[in-house]
């Protein structure tokens, strides 16, 4: 038997909104460690890794490891039915082919349950090697979202370059070019508004903007985003999920062949 209870149900809603357009189907793995998921987008260019640690839930019970194959659009439909303040319980019995979502209003005067059919998903689990990154940029997530949105009105790809000057986001398209430079900014009272750049080596990589815009749908989950870059390696765009874990997006670079 598997059961989790999350008082801040809106968190699960936000997680689903962040990944439902990128990934169609995924296996959610439940173990003593927590609730996790790894999946590629249909083009096999991007990879999403989600971890919600068991300690972060108000209640978490997992008698044996299970893997639940779920269509994300359908799970998102169900989670949309939860109120933002609702307490969410997810449970699955051993050997059944469905998972139940229960939503309780904070005052306990409305209780809903939804049963979602599970599916067999034959997905490849990729090993993500530990990497030392050439540059790590931490910046306000809303700023990153704004930059990706603005640049995508000009071009299809973004070149992210980290130098001593800061981090530069550049694009070019039919109408012209755009460059946005963000400098390190630690002298703010509010840490959520800081931009911090750790650079070991200068790095410049090219990525498809439409994926970056898709990742930015995770913005409501965290005030800061961490972008880790190394030459000729996938970028990692990470949103921490308050006290519980993270959602990490990996995107393969465009490379001169």
């Amino acid at each position: 038997m598997f059961e989790l209870r999350l008082e801040q149900g809106s968190l699960l809603k936000k997680v689903m909104e962040a990944i439902k357009d990128l990934v169609n189907d995924a296996n959610f793995d439940c173990s003593a460690t927590g609730f996790s998921m790894q999946a590629m987008d249909s083009s096999h260019v991007a990879l999403v890794a989600l971890l919600l640690r068991s300690e972060g839930f108000e209640h978490y019970r997992c008698d044996r490891n299970i893997s639940m194959g779920i269509n994300l659009a359908n799970m998102a439909k169900i989670l949309k039915c939860a109120g933002n303040d609702d307490i969410v319980t997810v449970k699955a019995d051993d050997g059944t082919d469905s998972v139940t979502f229960m939503f309780e209003s904070p005052t306990q005067d409305k209780i809903s349950d939804f049963e979602l059919k599970l599916m067999d998903i034959d997905s490849e689990h990729l090993g993500i090697p530990e990497a030392e990154y050439d540059a790590i940029v931490r910046m306000p997530s809303a700023e990153f979202a704004r930059i990706c949105k603005d640049l995508s009105s000009i071009g299809d790809t973004v070149v992210i370059s980290v130098t001593k000057e800061g981090v530069k986001f550049s694009t070019r398209g039919d109408i012209g070019t755009a460059n946005i430079v963000c400098r390190q900014n630690t002298s703010v009272d509010k840490p959520e508004e800081a931009t911090i750049i750790e650079m070991k080596e200068m790095v410049s990589l090219t990525f498809a903007l439409r994926y970056m815009n898709s990742f930015a749908k995770a913005t409501p989950l965290a005030s800061q985003v961490t972008i880790s870059l190394s030459s000729d390696l996938p970028v990692v765009v990470e949103y921490k999920i308050a006290e519980m874990g993270y959602i990490r997006f990996y995107l393969a670079p465009k490379i001169e062949e």
Binding site: M40, S43, H44, V45, A46, L47, E124, H125, L126, G127, I128, P129, T157, T206, A208, L233, P234, Y250, A252, P253, K254, I255, E256, E257
Partner: peptide, 14 residues
């Protein structure tokens, strides 16, 4: 011209 790579080029099946 740069071409799009796939994730499997960097991360192998585990």
């Amino acid at each position: 011209l740069k071409s799009q790579t796939r994730i499997a080029r960097f991360f192998r099946a585990s």
